[in-house]
């Protein structure tokens, strides 16, 4: 499905990615963990066309998509969410959901001026789909609210909903639970598992180890831009280098604590 071969990315002297290789097979749910600043978001950016890797290749469904435009990558079926949702305040939740949809006709000037009826039908179908997804993520009551005024957690959920509007083949989530209410996390994990059974491939960046072990079949551990381990979530604690990555050099206390609690217990 997705093959990342030795990608490197430098920013003004620091190596955010230093030859990381990742492989995600169709139908799999894979996690990507690592201390803050280890290059997880950069890896997602390189896969989804938002950053051009300095070296290495990204293959999606057998096609080389290295350095392709983000929308071209997305059109192949790869949709990603962002660590910071930053949703606009000038668009309602429903508007944002529709913007996530694939309304071929409504998006051209010609059709939106000429074939009103077909455009309206297309939109009505998208509205139906949006309602059913909003119900699933429990945001249907807020459909008329400005997206940017939702809480951080709700914005993350909405970002996921928007991504689902386009029926992605592979979904890459950047810290989907950050700011999300703990009770909702369990539900979110269930949603993702359900998506997986529906055939969606998942790559999840996350700090919450419980969530990772609930959602993922396999985990990659990234440290200083390189993959240092790949194993089942439960086996993470067997890898001394993983512990060292988290405990030894991590900058963030929160990460240390969560690693302590989750991985060691």
């Amino acid at each position: 499905m997705l093959v990342v071969e030795g990608i490197k990315k430098h920013f003004a002297g620091i190596a955010a990615l230093d030859g990381a290789s990742i492989e995600v097979r169709a139908g799999e749910s894979v996690g990507l963990v690592g201390p803050n600043g280890s290059g997880k978001s950069t890896a997602l950016n390189c896969c989804s066309g938002f950053e051009r890797p300095d070296a290495g290749r990204v293959l999606l469904l057998g096609k080389d998509v290295t350095g392709k435009e983000p929308w071209d990558v997305a059109k192949l079926g790869l949709v990603r969410t962002f660590q910071h949702a930053n949703l606009p305040t000038k668009m309602s939740v429903m508007d944002l959901m529709l913007a996530g949809g694939h309304l071929v006709r409504g998006e051209t000037i010609r059709h939106s001026l000429v074939s009103w009826k077909r455009v309206r039908e297309e939109e009505a179908d998208a509205v139906d789909k949006a309602w059913s997804i909003l119900e699933r993520i429990k945001l249907d009551k807020l459909a008329g609210h400005p997206g940017g005024k939702l809480s951080g957690g709700q914005q993350k959920l909405l970002s996921l909903g928007m991504a689902l509007m386009g029926d992605p083949k592979i979904l890459m989530l950047d810290e989907p639970t950050a700011g999300v209410n703990p009770s909702l996390r369990v539900e979110l994990a269930e949603h993702l598992r359900k998506l997986q059974t529906e055939g969606v491939t998942l790559l999840t960046v996350e700090h919450d180890m419980r969530f990772i072990s609930d959602v993922c079949d396999r985990v990659y551990v990234l440290d200083r831009g390189a993959i240092i381990a790949s194993c089942a979530p439960a086996e993470l604690s067997d890898h001394p280098e993983v512990l060292e990555a988290y405990l030894g050099r991590s900058g963030s206390r929160a990460v240390v604590e969560s690693a302590d609690r989750r991985t060691l217990s």
Binding site: F50, V79, P88, M162
Partner: peptide
Amino acid sequence: RRVRNGQYGRVLVLIRENPDLAASLRHNVV
């Protein structure tokens, strides 16, 4: 008005507010 209120207008507003988000949702920003 039609352009603004249809899907194209929605995409344009999203491009104004958060172009990366628009691009990630397969909208050709250029």
